[in-house]
Amino acid sequence: MTRWLTEAVPRGRIAAFRTLIYLFVAADLVVFTPWVRTRASVPGELYQPLLIGRLLPLPTPTPTVVAVIFWGLLLAALLAATGRAPRLLGWTVCALYLEWMIIAMSYGKVDHDRFGLLVALAVLPTAGRARHGDTTRTEAGGWALRVTQIAVICTYFLAAWAKLRFGGLDWLTGSVLARAIIRRGTDLADLIAQVPYLLIVAQFGIVAFELLSPVVFLLPARWRVAMVGFFYSFHVVTIATITISFAPHLAAMTSFLPLERVRPLVWARRLAGRGPVDAEPTSTPPDPARLDDRARVGDQAPAVGRPLGP
């Protein structure tokens, strides 16, 4: 079990995942959750913090508190995306984003698509330093990615458990998707809704997909990536029909992908024609055995200009 949890991965994958996650946090502040800033104008008596907010001595949101968290988190996330000071900046982003989410979710609605992202922010500081393109492998980084993957799959599995726990079998045969389409459906959703019993079949399929999601850990690497691609396609359909994005969850799910192969800066230099960029930076030490072999071959080879005969 320990071996599976700490399966080593290239440091370049950690560097790419770290950059992506911290850039997403910055984008989340200004694109997906800018409405959290409006909590500063809500009367303080309406603030009913989550359990963690009740256990920790966190302040009631005020204009000053919300502004400090917003600008501090935005700056820290952008700096952390560079890979510098991974522990100091990583823990700072984790703490500030957690408080940002406590403020967001303490007024009656809690989104479950943030779980994987919060876990990623909590474990990334433990992965240590990593450079883009570094092919050396790290168990600490592998643990950080594995824990994030488990959180992503728990989001699916526990969502199905909650559906069956609170909705029972009626969730499968009820009008859940029909109500969602009425509230926020698209033209595509309206077309799908006209097919008899298709929404009921879709509800059975959603629960089956969520309950079977842990199977991804049992698949070989190639099939695992294919299944993660299916996960993404599921969310594409969700966005296209009922306009729910699950963007934080999708960002955390990149922990399954070989992100070290995604090198936008290298591709940009190649397109700009700024010299050879095929060589990947690596800190892998040379193999002593190979060096010895090369030395022996060099000793046996005739020197240039030396006569071969007696």
Rank of each mutant, 00 (worst) to 15 (best):
W4M: 03
R11S: 10
G12C: 10
A15S: 12
F17Q: 04
I21Q: 07
A27G: 13
D28V: 00
V31A: 04
T33Q: 05
W35T: 14
R39G: 02
R39Y: 09
R39V: 09
L51N: 05
I52W: 10
I52D: 12
G53W: 10
R54I: 01
L55Q: 12
L56Q: 03
L56I: 07
P57Q: 06
L58N: 09
L58Y: 11
V66L: 11
V68R: 07
V68M: 14
W71T: 07
G72Y: 02
L75V: 07
A80T: 11
A81N: 12
T82F: 06
A85C: 08
L88I: 10
L89G: 04
L89H: 04
W91G: 00
T92A: 14
T92M: 03
C94G: 08
A95Q: 04
Y97A: 00
E99A: 09
I102F: 03
M105K: 14
M105P: 11
S106F: 01
V110L: 12
R114N: 11
R114P: 08
F115T: 04
G116Y: 01
L117Q: 05
L118K: 06
V119R: 01
L121N: 11
A122T: 01
P125N: 05
R129H: 12
R131P: 00
D134S: 04
D134Y: 07
T138Q: 01
A140G: 03
W143A: 13
V147F: 06
T148E: 04
I150E: 01
V152I: 01
V152Y: 07
I153L: 05
C154E: 14
F157V: 00
L158M: 13
L158Y: 10
W161P: 00
L164H: 00
F166T: 10
G168A: 02
L169P: 05
L172H: 11
T173M: 07
R183F: 08
T186I: 05
L188W: 01
A193T: 01
Q194Y: 03
V195P: 03
P196K: 11
L198T: 15
L198Q: 05
L199N: 09
I200Y: 15
F204E: 02
F204D: 03
V207T: 09
A208D: 13
F209H: 14
F209A: 15
F209C: 12
E210I: 01
L211F: 13
L212W: 11
F217K: 09
F217T: 08
L218M: 06
A221Q: 09
V225I: 15
V225T: 11
V228A: 07
F230V: 15
F231S: 01
S233R: 08
V237W: 02
A240V: 03
I242E: 02
I242Q: 00
F246V: 00
T254P: 10
S255F: 03
F256L: 02
L259S: 04
E260V: 07
R263K: 07
L265Q: 15
L265S: 12
A268Q: 14
E280A: 14
T282W: 04
T282A: 05
T284C: 12
P286T: 12
D287V: 08
A295E: 11
G305Y: 14
G309M: 11
